[in-house]
């Protein structure tokens, strides 16, 4: 193996941070980042599914026939997504209500299939787990950052607490759907600027 486990883990945090570098998984990125809490909740759910699906896919990579591999990956991913959905309903119901349809939609999130296909099906279990964890945490960080930006500008709050004085008039455009696109575009632009040097 060319890279160490640490390298596999770290690359997901900056080098291949999903929404900005890989530009994958934009649907939940745009839809649920109205607040930091939602963003991080979604990120953690995705990271959980990602780690376990990566482990299982990589463990089964010798058994899964090449012709039906996508179907197998989807079964694995869908199983873990349903697990997450049930667990969230049972233990963090208010968050589940806010994320709603976007939890089942993790199944079709490109990051999961992308990592299963591009990484886990070709690498060992430990490396895949490290990769899944790194990408998952990167995704969580990105969603958290986007969520904070939108929540602070759009509602004037951070984790539900007001950050500005009462005179602040929230820039509510930012929590609307078009604001998500503008915000993501600006962040991508800043990332590219920062990455250039």
């Amino acid at each position: 193996m060319a890279k160490t486990l640490t390298q596999e883990f770290v690359k997901g945090l900056w080098e291949e941070i999903p929404p900005f570098r890989l530009v994958l998984g934009l649907c939940p990125t745009l839809a649920v980042t109205k607040s930091v809490e939602n963003g991080i909740g979604m990120g953690v759910a995705t990271a959980f599914v990602l780690v376990f699906s990566n482990i299982l896919v990589s463990a089964l990579r010798k058994i899964i026939p090449a012709k039906v591999r996508i179907a197998c990956f989807i079964i694995v991913i869908a199983t873990f997504v349903t697990v997450v959905e049930l667990l969230m309903q049972a233990f963090t119901y208010p968050l589940f209500l806010k994320l709603g349809i976007f939890i089942p939609l993790i199944v079709v999130n490109c990051i999961l299939l992308g990592r299963a296909e591009a990484f886990a099906s070709k690498n060992g279990v430990l490396a895949s787990a490290a990769d899944g964890l790194g990408i998952g945490i990167g995704f969580t960080l990105a969603l958290g950052a986007l969520g904070s930006l939108r929540e602070i500008l759009g509602s004037g709050t951070f984790f539900g607490k007001a950050v500005f004085g009462p005179a602040f008039q929230p820039f509510s455009f930012m929590v609307e759907a078009p604001g998500a696109f503008v915000c993501l575009g600006l962040m991508l632009c800043l990332m590219n600027l920062a990455g250039k040097k």
């Binding site: 039906v68 197998c72 079964i75 694995v76 869908a78 199983t79 349903t82 697990v83 049930l86 049972a90």
Partner: peptide, 25 residues
Amino acid sequence: VVLTVLSSFSGGLLAALRNGTQERI
């Protein structure tokens, strides 16, 4: 065989989990 085994494994896991969490949900 692989698809069947995978699906039934996943189905079994989910059924068990659902039974376990239904009341709480």
